[in-house]
Design a protein around this nucleic acid. Structure first.
Length: 293
DNA sequence: AAGGCGAACAACCGCGATTCG
DNA sequence: GCGAATCGCGGTTGTTCGCCT
């Protein structure tokens, strides 16, 4: 005890993990005075911790009836998702609906969940891939009902993730705008699967042309996706022009369609390159569009 | 066995709201 | 009414643990 008074005299404040002895002292204080007067714990020299730290320890770890070391049940997950959609990031409020859970528990649960989802989606290639398929004739080869079901604004923010089932390439689509929203229930509801015919690697489908670029191809070993790798993942931030050196410069006629919801070409290529930093285009040779196009 | 990596958890920090003298 | 102290919340960072290679 004398030593703790010494801490107080020196203004020493302990941080980091709590020891069982500290917990015991804190519990004694709460049993005597109730869960209040947190600052007096330090001023009385009981613990070299701030009132804030003491309160947090009590609320998150020492309070009775906490569900310690117990994962969120499916039902609890459902409740969090629903309430987050209703209240937003009001973790303390959400926690009141979950007996034994603290706001920190809910917050950590949500944070982990968000990171998991973001990582899943991080590998998705840009919209251009999907749009290419969408514009591919005949359209009967491409099942794009899910795309048509989206609003225009949603389509502008779609990304897709390819996987292969036999000879069929399956895209999981996601509204990227929803990634920035806290409402992941809505986000998950927007996950769709769209099946399209698999396109052989390195072929360039013929589309209505819009703009042509000398587009750098990735070395083949880094091609994890036909035609367009996940460029936004490979481009350093802040943008470093030297990274272009890693590419092998090849002239590729990238006839990129830009499609409306009716499937017709509305030719601006900007959407197709929306996933790239704008600076990158300074390093591409622009091929003027021929007058007849 | 050891290192890398991601998930989960614990704790801190900043700031706004509230309380109190 | 005002300013200081305290509390509570949300965001962020640090740590630990388990799994995989």
């Amino acid at each position: 005890m004398e030593r703790e008074f010494e801490f107080e005299q020196r203004g020493f404040i302990k941080k980091g993990p709590w020891s069982s002895e500290e917990d015991e002292i804190l519990l004694k204080h709460v049993s005597k005075y109730g869960p209040r007067e947190w600052s007096s714990i330090r001023s009385k020299g009981l613990l070299p911790r701030t009132g804030k730290s003491c309160r947090l320890r009590w609320v998150n770890k020492l309070r009775p009836n906490l569900k310690a070391g117990c994962k969120f049940s499916v039902e609890e997950e459902r409740v969090v998702i629903e309430l987050q959609a209703e209240f937003g990031n009001k973790w303390a409020k959400i926690a009141t609906y979950l007996p034994g859970r603290t706001d920190n528990d809910v917050k950590n649960f949500w944070s982990s969940r968000r990171k998991r989802l973001e990582r899943t989606l991080h590998q998705r290639p840009p919209l251009s891939k999907l749009q290419k398929h969408k514009g591919k004739a005949p359209l009967s080869q491409v099942k794009v009902e899910e795309v048509h079901a989206c609003s225009s604004n949603q389509v502008d923010n779609l990304s897709c993730h390819p996987s292969y089932m036999g000879n069929t390439e399956v895209f999981q689509m996601v509204n990227l705008q929803d990634l920035t929203k806290p409402n992941y229930q809505h986000f998950e509801a927007n996950l769709h699967a769209v099946e399209v015919e698999a396109t052989p690697l390195h072929t360039v489908p013929s589309f209505e042309s819009s703009t042509e670029y000398n587009f750098p191809l990735l070395p083949e070993s880094q091609m994890d996706f036909p035609l367009f790798p996940v460029c936004q993942d490979l481009v350093p931030e802040p943008f470093d022009p030297n990274f272009i050196d890693m590419f092998e410069q090849k002239k590729v006629a990238t006839r990129l369609p830009s499609l409306g919801l009716d499937g017709n070409c509305r030719s601006t290529s900007s959407n197709c390159f929306k996933d790239f930093p704008t600076e990158i285009f300074e390093y591409f040779e622009h091929i003027p569009t021929s007058p007849e196009q």
